[in-house]
Design a binder for these strands. Structure first.
Length: 285
DNA sequence: GCCCAGGTGAAGC
DNA sequence: GCTTCACATGGG
């Protein structure tokens, strides 16, 4: 049997901040609701009293895929308690209480962040949407437009570079294609990735062309659940500079070291707070 | 038109 | 080692 909707009880969950924070790229805001696709299922989410209401289009009896994706079991208070007690962190948390990290699919996350290189978040969304429409499986959805699953590794691997460039991927096209083919050709130990220690997994991911430390760290954090990982991108670099070293100009290496030692066991969460806060509330340049 | 965007890899000091 | 640059494409 199963149900078409379910309400999950959860505290401290800011759905808007979480789905708009640039960690996942398939969510669309429609009025009060968010519509998206998680692993081949169309979903509509809505903030509800004491929790989150979910709607699907085909009956579901086991909702663990959604609980896992949304990380409903995480006690946010415990996470926030591990943050360093300094002004930048206090401000970022105060501005967005309830911001969470999702737990995404490895391939979709890797592919999306391969596309993220020197692109704005809006444009990453556009590339991901176009790629899914053209190379993903159509799936049932509510309303007029069909929805599309994110393209499988096989679907991307069987594309030509030209086909991918037609999805506006630019110079990222060969990187995405290469990643899909290298995974299928077992150039990296893809299957064992989820159980690897952080450094080993990072080493595997960065064997892929177009995947450096930043993209690898995003995959480790957003798909692998390595919560101690702190991806450093241009936004975070600016935020760290301005918030923690206003008078000096530390090298990228120095900032990396600071990020690795300052933020504690949930540094990845801290990073997401700083990142979203910097993007939304600070005019950093 | 110009500048820059959740980077990376290669080439130049 | 560190700095600079090319790489496609679109939005502000």
């Amino acid at each position: 049997m199963g149900d078409l909707s379910k309400t999950f009880r959860v505290r401290d969950y800011d759905l808007d901040a979480t789905l708009a924070s640039g960690q996942a790229f398939r969510w669309q805001s429609l009025g009060q609701a968010w519509e998206g696709v998680i692993g081949g299922r169309w979903v509509r989410l809505c903030a509800a009293k004491d929790g989150i209401a979910a709607e699907v289009i085909k009956p579901v009896s086991d909702w663990s895929w959604l609980e896992e994706y949304l990380q409903l079991q995480v006690d946010l208070g415990q996470v926030l308690a591990t943050f360093p007690d300094d002004e930048p962190m206090r401000n970022a948390v105060a501005a967005l209480p309830g911001l969470r990290l999702l737990r995404q699919d490895y391939w979709e996350c890797l592919a999306s962040f391969i596309l993220s290189a020197t692109k704005q978040i809006v444009q990453i969304r556009q590339m991901v949407a176009l790629l899914s429409e053209r190379h993903g499986e159509p799936i049932a959805s509510s309303g007029g437009d069909p929805a599309f699953a994110f393209p499988t590794i096989e679907a991307i691997a069987s594309c030509s570079e030209k086909k991918l460039r037609e999805c506006k991927l630019g110079f990222r096209a060969p990187n995405l294609l290469g990643a899909a083919r290298d995974i299928l050709d077992e150039k990296i130990d893809w299957r064992r990735l989820p159980t690897m220690a952080t450094d080993e997994a990072r080493g595997e991911l960065t064997k892929l062309r177009g995947v450096g430390p930043k993209i690898a760290d995003c995959v480790l954090l957003f798909a692998g659940g390595h919560h101690e990982v702190f991806p450093v991108d241009v936004w975070i670099e600016r935020a760290l500079q301005r918030l923690y070293f206003p008078k000096r100009r530390p090298s990228a290496k120095r900032l990396r070291k600071f990020a690795d030692t300052h933020f504690g066991p949930y540094a990845g969460y801290a990073q997401q707070y700083l990142f979203h806060h910097a993007r939304v509330h600070l005019k950093l340049k």
